[in-house]
Write a protein that binds this DNA or RNA. Structure first.
Lengths: 229, 229
DNA sequence: CGATTGAGTGAACAAGTGTTCACTATAGTG
DNA sequence: CACTATAGTGAACACTTGTTCACTCAATCG
């Protein structure tokens, strides 16, 4: 169970109410509602709806706030979307950081990386769902932001591989290209993971196995790679 | 310039009007408006909007038809979406069929395949735009339909490679897995192609080159592939 | 030929939308 | 302490939305 899923829907921010004290410095409270708006959007998407089908009023309703309050935080749903992209970027970077800290498992490293990733996606499903839905569907600016975040992620991944002296023979450009392929494959796998039917352990196994094989294929290719003339 | 882009927006289907005769058997006319609805949806997405942000009324307006008429053809925007998915499937299969008829270019076959694909995507940009936007963003049923179409495409591609005796050493299962990776890479490249900034020939060159390298990497991996124990 | 069918119409509906505005009441300020 | 700045309110606005319904009128059929 992820730490950021509250489960219960935010409601009743009674101004003078005895319950749920506003409690906290002015700007802290402001940031809190801001996050509640972001959370509201993620919650609404959690039933499978795409980001671009959300309405401003829905979001504020889910966040337990009056529509006009929205404008104190974002001028637009688009702007909220961009904030979500940033949050997704943070989530991705955390994944990389954890992988770095943990080091490579000695054997079966591909398979175990995949399992770790699978769990990570499930734990942060709301972010990945958003990313998947806005990657192709959102407004141009959001799409661009996501693309940016992905290439940034790929770049960091390439750096890590360079630092770890994996594939030392390959020039940096090749590493980048390989990692960008890995990243798009990961993103694609993420949507597969999210859409897994609930009880089907067999389907999950197959999907995982396929993902492992695709990565293995890529790294086999990397081993055989010869920089183009 | 693609054959199906009319350019001018459909308007004024005056019943008794002298212009634009309804001309034709009853059911032919019905099918014509049906296609006009599909076209209208594609047109609206052509400015970068996602499918899930379209409204029924917008679509009928663009098609030059009263909202109520929509229901004579689809019960839902979702159903229209599914029809679009089918159209996309046809478009993809046509690509494969053309490739089959043309045979493999003797040398540089990867690069020239990529160039052909790039032009194909541009020629049918409306379909690819829709596919990209609904792949992750649409309703669950549409997503599933697209996924289906993709795996069908991958399957046909694998069959073709088997028939052509490319990679004869590989078992069919491995071929399928490889092709599915190729297909997702192609789809991803399609969104890159669609979002290319207009004048930037340099960016286009880079993007193309990257695409070629990724495919080369995959096929290098395929050559080295050893079926898992 | 006259009768039937059904694709497309136009008006109406209840509900939902984004945005604005004057407002309240409270945390932070001097 | 009184004063100001501002996060959030609630009502109002002008639209747009999906769906329904009785309707028209031309292609089709007996």
């Amino acid at each position: 169970m992820s730490a950021e899923t509250t489960g219960e829907t935010a409601r009743k921010r009674s101004r003078s109410g005895s319950t749920s004290t506003p409690s906290g410095s002015r700007s802290a409270q402001k940031q809190r509602t801001r996050e509640e708006l972001l959370n509201a959007a993620l919650n609404l998407m959690d039933t499978g709806r795409g980001f671009s089908s959300l309405s401003l009023r829905e979001v504020t309703r889910e966040a337990g706030v009056v529509p006009a309050a929205f404008y104190r935080h974002f001028s637009d749903l688009d702007e909220l979307g961009l904030a979500l992209v940033e949050a997704c970027g943070l989530t991705l970077r955390r994944l990389l950081r954890e992988a770095r800290r943990q080091g490579l498992p000695p054997t079966q490293m591909l398979r175990s990386s995949v399992l770790i990733y699978k769990n990570y996606v499930k734990a942060h499903h709301r972010y990945f769902r958003f990313a998947a839905s806005a990657r192709g569907g959102g407004s141009p600016s959001i799409r661009k932001a996501i693309r940016n975040e992905e290439s940034h992620f790929a770049h960091e991944m390439a750096q890590d591989m360079r630092n770890l002296d994996l594939m030392p023979r390959l020039p940096m450009a090749a590493l980048e290209m390989i990692c960008s392929l890995v990243v798009t494959t990961m993103m694609n796998a993420a949507t597969d993971i999210l859409d897994l039917p609930e009880g089907q352990r067999q389907a999950e196994k197959e999907m995982t196995e396929n993902f492992v094989m695709q990565l293995r294929l890529i790294f086999l290719g990397a081993r055989a790679w010869r920089p183009p003339a």
